[in-house]
Design a protein around this nucleic acid. Structure first.
Lengths: 219, 219
DNA sequence: GCGCACAATATTGTATACAATATCCACAAT
DNA sequence: ATTGTGGATATTGTATACAATATTGTGCGC
């Protein structure tokens, strides 16, 4: 929340900055975002701040109440469950399409992403989360489907919000094996196996996260 | 584009107004939207206009170029194909979930929506489109999955844009039968049949639309 | 007649001023 | 003590003013 780069337009800089802050968990779910305060922190007027907040609200990362400002969105346990149901379907589709359409460059990127993820220290929650996301993005990218990529962006954001509410740790005995199986199936161009592997992975992971989320109250 | 109602906030009124205009095809794909012009037409300042345009851009209905304003989005043939691939998956999921989770009220709404659709004059393109959309929305609603509803909203918008580019007519010999089969499967709580029926319907419809889209150039 | 440069114009981007609404604290009435 | 009312304060919502960038058109040179 200190310095920030402007791409060309101030509002885009603010948007990127705040989006990352929410997705990285620097802004906690439920936290209120005041326009004047943000403007002072980033050294810009309220106008680009407002426009960035508007976009983030439309993304579903923030919740706006009329005349009451915006807050970082919190998802109920039910919404979290719903999200993983959809994610299972869409991740499965992404894996199947990636198996069918991936290029040699995609294959290299997928291998690299998984290697990075395996190399990350198991104790580093943020790095783990970031690299896991990168791996899944590589799969979606390899699917070469623009609509899927757009929708997946929304889902990624929801999952990030859920994770920050639960602080569920990524590591799991089966995670590495599942990732490997998924990658193998994609590279082998076996779209059915890839779809199954992706769906299984989402299911196990969802069970983990939802188990953590369940005990808490659902505001 | 003449009168418009304001819910409470001006920007929300502008947003709803413009969104409907784009989705109804009153604003043609590719058409440029000037801020001062819109402000004059709707009788408000540029600020709420800008904020509405920002949100619509984030929705994917408009395309913004820096310092060059926004235009109604046009989708390439490839993007249209991609959209229907995803829609097939998500409509299938929605139908399956609706079959599992629909309430008596949902069932009544589904029946009513389909009846309305059947009753609409086959020559009324706009009514046909609107009621078809309402039927599909009823299904998604009956699925009782918030995440799916949100994502479906994005897909609906894309499909609306595609349709306005092609002006494909909704009517098709198989459409009525497919709708009926889909509804029957949902009401019978047969989620596999419902999923298949939805996917089949999307496929036949996609083929129709894409066939119309293909001849045209892809800007 | 064609093309480039440059100015005139228009439009978007940002900042600020003003209005409307909500929040919060003090204080009184029960 | 608690609750309700009122005003003071703060924050959002809208309008407008100013700055920066793009577009357009005109004139000059070739």
């Amino acid at each position: 929340m200190t310095s920030f780069e402007r791409p060309t337009l101030v509002r885009d800089g603010v948007y990127d900055h705040l989006r990352r802050a929410v997705l990285d968990g620097d802004l906690a779910p439920g936290e209120r975002l005041g326009e004047v305060e943000l403007g002072a922190q980033l050294g810009v007027s309220r106008t680009p701040i407002r426009e960035a907040l508007m976009r983030l609200t439309q993304d579903g990362l923030l919740i706006a109440e009329a005349n009451k400002g915006v807050r970082v969105r919190t998802l109920s346990a039910a919404e979290a469950r719903d999200t993983y149901v959809v994610r299972e379907e869409l991740d499965g589709l992404a894996a199947a399409l990636a198996a069918q359409h991936h290029t040699p460059a995609d294959a290299a990127a997928l291998r690299a992403a998984l290697n990075e993820l395996h190399a990350a220290p198991g104790s580093d929650y943020r790095a783990q989360t970031r690299l896991d996301l990168a791996f899944h993005r590589a799969i979606t990218h390899a699917a070469h489907n623009a609509a899927l990529n757009d929708l997946n962006r929304d889902l990624e954001q929801r999952v990030a919000l859920i994770k920050h509410q639960t602080r569920t740790y990524n590591a799991h005995p089966q995670t590495d094996a599942q990732h490997a199986a998924l990658l193998d199936a994609i590279l082998a161009r076996d779209h059915d196996a890839a779809r199954d592997a992706a769906r299984t992975h989402v299911r196990t992971f969802a069970a983990l996260v939802l188990n953590d989320l369940q005990p808490r109250s659902t505001p």
